[in-house]
Computed example of a mutant assay.
Amino acid sequence: MKKTFRFYKTDKGSWYIDLPEWTDGIEALQMVEGADTMLDTVSNQSDEVYLELSDEPFEGADVLHLTENLQDSITGGIYMMPFYKGTEINHPMWLCGVTEFVFKGLPPLIYVGYPV
């Protein structure tokens, strides 16, 4: 599965994924615990960014590595983003249960691309 997703930052500085097919509360769509600061980086400090996400490799993608599976406790998992566009950043983040919804499970690797 490879799909482009829109992420947006509210006036209060909170990041969310734009996921129209999500039927539960919007609070679950908020990016927190490192995902928010990663979005600040990849958005170049703007209030919107589009990312291509996939559970299969594709050219030019950075890779998020699952380092801790939290499906049996708080949902989702802790991922590490070692590099951003060739620069080492070693950025950890928690990706919540929405990740499981999007990927139909919790992939060991998530590939991230930056469409133009």
Rank of each mutant, 00 (worst) to 15 (best):
M1N: 13
T67L: 10
Y114N: 03
P57D: 05
E56W: 09
G113I: 11
S14N: 13
T87F: 11
D24G: 11
T75G: 05
D47V: 12
E33A: 10
W15S: 01
N90S: 15
M38N: 05
P20A: 03
F83R: 12
Q45E: 15
T87A: 12
S46P: 08
D40T: 10
A35G: 04
L106Q: 02
F7I: 06
L39R: 00
S54K: 08
G113H: 06
D55S: 08
I26T: 14
T10V: 09
M38V: 15
E100S: 13
E48C: 14
T67I: 15
F7K: 00
L19I: 07
V98N: 00
C96Y: 02
K2I: 14
K104I: 10
D11C: 09
W94R: 05
Y114E: 04
L29V: 08
G60V: 10
T67C: 09
D72Y: 09
S73Y: 07
H65G: 06
I110Q: 00
N90C: 11
V63K: 04
T41S: 11
P57L: 07
M38P: 03
E21G: 04
E52L: 11
T37V: 12
W15D: 00
Y79W: 05
L53W: 02
S46Q: 15
P115N: 03
Q45K: 15
M38W: 07
P20Q: 04
G34F: 02
T99A: 03
Y50H: 14
W15Q: 00
R6D: 09
E56D: 11
T37I: 10
V42H: 01
G60W: 11
I26D: 13
T99K: 02
Q71S: 14
I17Y: 01
M81L: 15
D55A: 05
P57K: 09
N90M: 14
E48H: 13
I74Q: 10
F101Y: 12
L19F: 08
E88N: 10
E88C: 10
S46C: 11
G86Q: 06
G105F: 04
P115M: 04
K9S: 03
E21H: 08
Y114I: 09
A61K: 07
P107Y: 01
N44M: 12
N44C: 11
Q71G: 07
Q30W: 07
F101S: 02
G13P: 04
E21S: 11
E100T: 15
T4I: 14
Q71Y: 06
I17G: 00
P20S: 04
Q45I: 10
L19V: 07
G97R: 03
I17E: 00
P115G: 01
Y50P: 02
D11I: 14
L95E: 01
V32Q: 10
T41V: 15
E59M: 13
T87G: 08
G25V: 14
G105L: 03
G113L: 08
M93F: 05
K2A: 09
L19H: 02
G86S: 02
G76I: 05
P57G: 02
S46A: 13
E56N: 11
K2R: 15
K2T: 12
G97L: 04
V63G: 01
V116N: 14
C96N: 10
I110K: 00
M93T: 07
L64M: 13
Q45W: 15
Y16K: 03
L64C: 12
L39W: 01
K85P: 06
L29C: 04
E88K: 13
G13R: 06
G76M: 03
T99F: 01
K12W: 10
I78F: 06
A35H: 00
T41A: 12
G105C: 06
T10Q: 05
